[in-house]
Amino acid sequence: MPASDSAPALAKERAMGRFAIHVISAVMVAQLVIGTPAVGRAQDTGTPATPVEIHASPVGEALAWVLTILNGGAATLTPDEVTARIAPSLLAGAPPEIVIGLMQQVAADAPFALAGFTRPPTVSQVNALLIGRSGTPLVVPLSVESATPHRITGANFSFVPPPPSVRLQTVAPGELPLAVGERRTSETGRIDGFFELDGRQIFLSCAGTGSPTVVLESGLNDPAAPWFAVESAVAPFARVCTYDRANTAGGASDPAPTPRTARDAVDDLHVLLSEAQVPGPYVLVGHSIGGLIARLYASTYPDEVVGLVLVDAAHEEQETRLEELVSPELW
């Protein structure tokens, strides 16, 4: 190929390399900050200093209860209270004793104040941004039953310290909840809301401008919430999208029939990006099982993907290899 013909391709390859470095840096810095002492980091978060009011709704009431437990009630929390507040479907995988232990562990950073929401809430789900004593932001995705008694069906706790100089972008405190099937676009081009896939509603958020589009794929039981700091870091230089994969804890998307495979997740993501008209090409960023999904997506749709960032990613043979490393007694 003549040099003049290869120059544009070479320039594009170099540009993609620089773009990938920006994305990798945003992910790595956010991960590294998690491992550093959180004390004294409150001034770095860029979150509101004044606590935000909780919406008067079933999910708002559930969030208020979680805050009450974290801010002094964890020590006296009983299995009966947990059973009254949390749906049997969630307790089947996390018995009351496990829930109490988790709440007590998170409560070690109390007191917490509600600093905002990472995206518009829905009538039965919210991503709450809390700031604890250490100043490290904590995102709590929380979902409740749509019918009385509105027990908690899913919850997650993810510390999301932002990279230095990155401001976490919360939504307006008074923003009304999204109805099922609704989507909302802001003046900056941010979009949040539901898209239908085979009769199911999937929640997607996209922010920022620029190409290629960065798509963040979460770990096994995580909705989009743990990516909040990374999303805030990438949005200033590229379009970045997150979504609540089906059957993740505390997400807003409808559940999908189980068992689920990585192929099912790839099919959902491909249809979602098409339905939402998210422009390619894509840089896929996958954490844990999300790395496996991202790799499968890239091999299935190679013309759509120009980059992969794997964050402590799972591997399809990891269980087999782990079994080979330990004795039968330990396995």
Rank of each mutant, 00 (worst) to 15 (best):
G291R: 03
Y243D: 02
P212W: 00
S143C: 04
T261N: 03
S143I: 09
T170K: 01
V66D: 13
V23N: 00
G250C: 14
V59P: 05
A249N: 15
D254L: 09
L178T: 02
L91T: 08
P255A: 12
T36L: 15
A113K: 11
A179V: 02
L220I: 12
S143G: 11
G46I: 04
P8T: 01
F237I: 05
H315N: 13
V215L: 03
P48Q: 06
T170I: 14
P111F: 06
S158P: 02
A7V: 11
R260H: 06
R321H: 02
V234P: 00
V82T: 14
P79M: 01
S25L: 02
R190W: 05
A3L: 14
G60H: 09
G135I: 04
A64Y: 01
G72W: 06
N247G: 03
A115C: 07
D109I: 09
G291W: 04
E329W: 06
S4P: 00
T209D: 13
S4V: 11
L114M: 03
C206E: 12
D192I: 01
A110W: 08
L130I: 11
S146H: 10
D80F: 00
H270V: 04
H150Q: 04
L102W: 10
G93D: 10
R133A: 13
I24G: 07
